[in-house]
Nucleic acid binder design. Structure first.
Lengths: 149, 149
DNA sequence: GCCAACCTTCACGCACACGTCAAGGTTGTG
DNA sequence: CACAACCTTGACGTGTGCGTGAAGGTTGGC
């Protein structure tokens, strides 16, 4: 499992201990046994941690929602009343809305930082063009207009 | 300063201790004194920490680059040779390219997560529409097409 | 000049996210 | 069945990012 996800065994056990993973199936000798869906889930946790920079607590909340969603699906299947079903589905949608809002906020902040950096880069490129226009290059490069970003 | 940035005094001192801030100016009685650029820098650190989810070590690396950039500007001003100047500017651009790449990678991962969530939401909305189409609402709401997100 | 409200530097404490042994049990292969 | 290579559960250690006093100094307003 560690090899499959790039995580350490210790981290995987820790995530199970913290409730991010449902306790793994066990062999007769108490070895943990994982299936493909466990690998997926762990990879997702790893991505949330490494790529989105969420803390395990935040990941836990997201996955709680995920599990609440699954429980809701069960409740949904059990619910006879259509009005109840609609209410459950609306709740699910609202939860996803909240998650999307959090992620979009994060993406927006990062986009702002990217734009700031690109603005600086633009200035530097203009400066470089100015330098290269002022004096011809003597390192083999030829001057040419640039239309890229 | 804490009030201006929403950080705690302890955090601010810690960031100075960790080298994220250059040591603040001091009053005659050794009180730290900050100016507007310090506020900006701290707010930037706070955003990198809270919004982008960077560790202080990562922020430190980004700001090191920032300071290398400033040093490079000085080197640039001192450089007499135009070829040297161009080399310095190209280095600066390359550093920004690297930062942008990191940020864009992060943004892309988050965008992927958003799309996954939105796909789920789309399915749920279709399901909800199906439910509402199958049986008319009896809670005062009227059915109507939705063109929003 | 006095005083409340701030600031200063240690110094210890704590929660998170693991790393790292220790002591023992399990598994698959020869 | 022997054995290397894995796994198990503790339990303690570590680095990060601060919180929380303690003991004292500084500042600005009256």
């Amino acid at each position: 499992m560690a090899a499959a996800t790039g995580l350490t065994p210790r981290s995987i056990r820790y995530y199970e201990e913290m409730g991010l993973l449902s306790p793994a199936a066990r062999s007769q000798g108490a070895y943990r046994l994982y299936d493909a869906s466990d690998v997926e889930r762990l990879a997702f946790i790893r991505d949330l941690r490494d790529d989105a920079g969420f803390s395990l607590a935040e990941i836990g909340r997201l996955l709680e929602d995920e599990e609440a969603r699954i429980r809701d699906r069960a409740r949904f299947a059990a619910a006879g009343d259509t009005a109840q079903k609609r209410a459950i589905v609306r709740d699910l949608i609202a939860r996803i809305d909240a998650q999307v809002a959090i992620l979009e906020g994060k993406a927006a902040r990062i986009t702002t930082m990217i734009q700031t950096a690109e603005a600086r880069r633009g200035h530097l490129r203009a400066h470089l063009a100015e330098l290269e226009g002022g004096l011809p290059a003597h390192d083999g490069r030829t001057r040419h207009p640039e239309t890229g970003p």
